[in-house]
Each structure stands twice: as structure tokens, then as C-alpha cells.
Amino acid sequence: MPEPGRTGVVRLEFHTPQGTSGTVIAEGGPWTAPGPGLAERPLYASDGSTLMVQRAVTADGGRIDGTAHRMLQNEIRAALRVGRRHGAAHPDCLPRLVGYDLDAESPYLLCPPVAGRPVAGLAGQLLLGQRHGFQTALFRALVLLSEAEVVHAGLRPEVVHWDGRQVRLTGFGRSAAVGESYREDVASLWMPPAAVRDAVADPHDDVWAAGLVVAHVVTGLPVEQLAGGAGVPAESALASLLDGVFRADPRRRPGAAQILRRLGDQSRAEAAALDDAALDAGRAAFDAERAKKAGPPAPAPAAEPPSAPGDPGRLSPALLLALGVVLIGLTLIGWRVFG
């Protein structure tokens, strides 16, 4: 059923994650502002169901906000990385992309609607069994995310959705690839103090933030009272679960897979590296071409190893001398015989 404020039928042409072109014709819902420089609206099918969500950078007199544009790109990049890593087994808990167009008048992405609701409204309300399910789903999502070599860098209760069974992570505008520098302002009460713009993106920063989200949901305490895990009751099950999560040095924090094991979930191993056999073949071809240009390898060291006994390819100097004497002797004998 159409709602007030709908923007009429829209036709959008976009790039798909597979590199092809796609088109959608749908009825546009009302725009909302999820953040500075950004706008978002649902796109409805003719039967009134929500097909997908369009998130766009708003253009002000043709000019767009550079930060909002980068954040949109970060969201696209994160979803594409997840898609490349997990392929047909794309996990529902991680962002999925329908398409994007960065060259449109208002650059945008299209994604499926997110099920569930932000856990910001569930703090202190989950039952014991629900807590365990939520914690397991959250850290499993982080394991899957780190397998795609993506750091969310903005986890907080508003971007973690929960439908009673599944977690869905959203809000990837500040995300970065593992090992590169954070390009956005990632500092927040939910992130480790050392995680700031230009710091190296580390999946263990997400573990810290997820630890705070879990503590917030379980205890109902505001983040200000949970800083560095301070508000987590000592010797509680929560304290055991989050042991080491708030260490200053990210290398000393447990990984998401380790937290999962503490929850009794062995389903995911530690993150595996992304690989691409065709790219590896290209890199090997580069190495071969480079070696060819560098010329032949350096000559072997001057000192020769001793000949192996019975080596037919090598004759010792003593043997050569003996052979020489025999040869001269035979020559002299022959000269006497035939001379």
C-alpha cells in the first residue's frame, strides 16, 4: 500500500557485483537521512513489498560531500569483498549488494532490506538463551567478516541488527581492508582508544567494539560505564567470555574465532586468506620476467666440492697424471714397434 511521501516510479540502471548492468523499476519510498550527506529510501514492488533500499549521496548544487561519497564507496567495497570471499555462500549476517552507480547524479548503492531491529533497543532485555544466541551470531559474523579481510570499524548497537535468530551487520561506511590505514574518523566510545584515522585497520578492533556491544546488551549499561570493560561484573560469565578483549594491544586480544570457541561454537576456523589463482599466476609471470631481465644467476662459488667416489664426470688430478703417463708410455712403445 503506497505511503504518504512516496516519490513515484523510479528507473535505475546500475552496475551489479558481477560486473554486468542491471535495471530496476520500482516505486520510491520517502527519503530519510541516515547520516550527513547521505539519503536513503526503500524501493517498493507493485505489490507493496520492499524490494531493496537505495542509499545515495546527496548532491547540493551538483557538488557532493566528499566524506559521504567515500563512506558510500566503503560500503560498496566491503559488500563486494564479502561477496568475493564467500561467493554463493554469502552469509546473511554480512552486507549484500544489489548494485551501485558512482557516476550517477547522486551516487548510490542498492541493497536488500535489513531484517531485524538494532540491538540499541534491546539492551538489558534479552533472556539468557537469547543472549547466547546473539553473542554466538555476532562473533560468527565477525569471523566471516575477517575472512573477507574487512574491518567494520564502526560497530555499535545502532548498526547491529537482531531478529531473534540472526545478526545482521550494517553501517560499513567507515570500514577498511585489514592492514590498510583507517581513512575515516573511526574514533568513538565503542572503539579502542588507539583506533583512530590513519591507524592500521585490525580485526581485533572489531572484537573490542563487539565486546562492548555484548556487554551493553547483557547489562543494559550505557557505554560510558562500560569503557574498557570496566562495568562488566568480575567473575561473571560475561567477564569470562570477554577476557582479554579490552587489552590495549590488539595483538594480545583474542580473535573472534577464539570468542566463538568460548561460546562452544567450533563451526569456523581462524580466518583464511583471500586467494585468486589467476592473480597468483600473473604474479609468478612477473617474477619470471623480472628474473629474466636480471640476467643469469650469479656463478657458483669458486671452491668446488670434492668429487664423489665413482663420479664418471670428474677425474682427480692424480688419476689424470697416471693416465697421462700410461698414454706417453704406450706412444713410445708404439713408436719402437712401428718405427
Partner: peptide, 11 residues
């Protein structure tokens, strides 16, 4: 970076 560009074009 050179190695990666080469690999991209090679692929």
C-alpha cells in the same frame, strides 16, 4: 604494486 598491476593485466 608493479607486480599486482602486471598480474591484473596478465589475468
Amino acid at each position: 604494486e608493479s607486480r599486482d598491476v602486471y598480474a591484473y593485466l596478465h589475468r
